[in-house]
Write a protein that binds this DNA or RNA. Sequence first.
DNA 1: ATGAAAGCGCTAACAC
DNA 2: GTGTTAGCGCTTTCAT
Lengths: 329, 329
Amino acid sequence: MADIARLAGVSVSTVSRALNGSSLVNAETRERVAELARSLNYSINLSAQNLRLQKNRTVAVVLPFEAESRQHISDPFFLALIGSIADALTDQGYDMLLSRVDAEHLDLAAQFYDSGKAIGVLMIGQWRHHDQLNALAARQLPLVVWGGALPRQLYCSIGGDNIAGGQLATTHLLARGCRRIAFLGDAQLPEVWLRREGYSQALRQAGLQADPALELALSFEPAAARAAIARWLPAAPGFDAIFACSDLLALQAIQLLRASGQRVPEDIAVVGFDDMPLAAYCDPPLTTVHQPVAEAGAELVASLMAQLSGEKALPRTLDVQLVVRASAP
Amino acid sequence: MADIARLAGVSVSTVSRALNGSSLVNAETRERVAELARSLNYSINLSAQNLRLQKNRTVAVVLPFEAESRQHISDPFFLALIGSIADALTDQGYDMLLSRVDAEHLDLAAQFYDSGKAIGVLMIGQWRHHDQLNALAARQLPLVVWGGALPRQLYCSIGGDNIAGGQLATTHLLARGCRRIAFLGDAQLPEVWLRREGYSQALRQAGLQADPALELALSFEPAAARAAIARWLPAAPGFDAIFACSDLLALQAIQLLRASGQRVPEDIAVVGFDDMPLAAYCDPPLTTVHQPVAEAGAELVASLMAQLSGEKALPRTLDVQLVVRASAP
DNA sequence: ATGAAAGCGCTAACAC
DNA sequence: GTGTTAGCGCTTTCAT
């Protein structure tokens, strides 16, 4: 900036003003400065600007990982959500800092805020640490979490309607005549827990009861999930349907069922969750609970912005719909 | 930091040294300072640190978008690549700034570097602006591009072996007895152009010639691509196979072929490109050219690091393989 | 309409 | 081992 000032024959203050479009500066001077900046490929140093202004336009998006498996990002739904957030942030003129933290230490995400790198945090999922997220919110960290609305929750969450989703899926299977519906998913995760609630409620409404033997708790991590399903299948009690807590899980289950000689949906009907981008193109096309991904990004961003402007951002639940395809017609 | 200094009864320099683990500072003092920082949720202000040190640990990852369609990020392959890069960057202790720029103005990506936000740029794809990328490289911008190796290229690119991929796909179809192989993809994009080169070469080696009437130029954007294929199909000259330049395109084509009463692979065999994460689960499972996504992220990051440490990073081509599945057995 | 100067939070000589 | 001080590049009073 000093260079430009020298070349333009003005002071740095004037250059600063010119570059920021201040009306106090002579139009001609402003043009000359702008021209110079362009020809020098000059851009305002944002570290300096942020330091001076004590603000920035960066939002941290945190995608936790499970340390044991050190899994790579792979779930198409999460990836699509990231894409959706990136678009929403771009639309609002914000930068997106994408990072991963250990799912056991979600509180590490505060670093991005404490160090002034980001003005707030968008956390993808609650994982097993509702408590840590509450602690962050208690510290006034601007935070919005993709996940379920839980009791005694201090932070703002946005998520699909997991209970309704679980009900829709289960009710659909019951209506098809299924009576023994297996549940696949790790209910330690709040979202899965809520989906199982919906599942249980739907069963109860049909005069049935959830059979714990029909529940398989497994991680979202594809390889581990696959192994767990493969171990479980041979010993599992009889069932005529599966409600899987993600489309990826549903796909794995279908593949293993087929490998063991069962047909989907003729022998076993399968319903997934998420309606990931390719769900309609799978073999068989998945019946699944649609979560509004595109809307999700915009909602997360909007809530964070609301919080930053002092409003109290309340948890929100987005409508989900059952999309019926061939895996459970 | 001043607060901590006061509370610890030392000067800010000592605090700075302590927080940075300098060995010059008394162990006891260091511990006291660290403790204080922890209890205050204090983190070094990175804007100030970056300003002072004239460096940072952030890499900009740029995913261009086509302005007309203002398309949202959706291609599973690109998303998977983003995930892979995020992991590689995390491993190396770098932050990832994910952003989107107009595909017609790739040079805007220089902003991130010029403004000191990032130490370098990872660009996803060359789009139609090899020239702009060359200009960026000429300006010494630390840059690595995911894409094809082109003649007269000043920048470092990393990409799948597109020519070999096109050959593998085409040769496979020829070996199946296909003789009229349609080509789907926009050859204005360098990667697609190279894939078409491979396709033409394979045809020539079999004593055949590429028929321009069998080529459909279309965008990667799913909805537009779908419409283009739908328009093209009824009028298209006879063909017995399709080589599509992405799995997404292949999937769209298959769906439309089926809708018009054709069977895949019995009537028309289809080969895709990318081997996106769910390619094996599609209906039918896709025969496709596998690009090494996980490796890709690590390679891109490694090349950028090499460049930053003064080495001359040369373009690299990663091996691809044909994965034979049901869409073209 | 423009300039001079202070200060954002930090680090690194340079003293001691 | 610790303190003093200058300065990174910017914005913004306060003068003029």
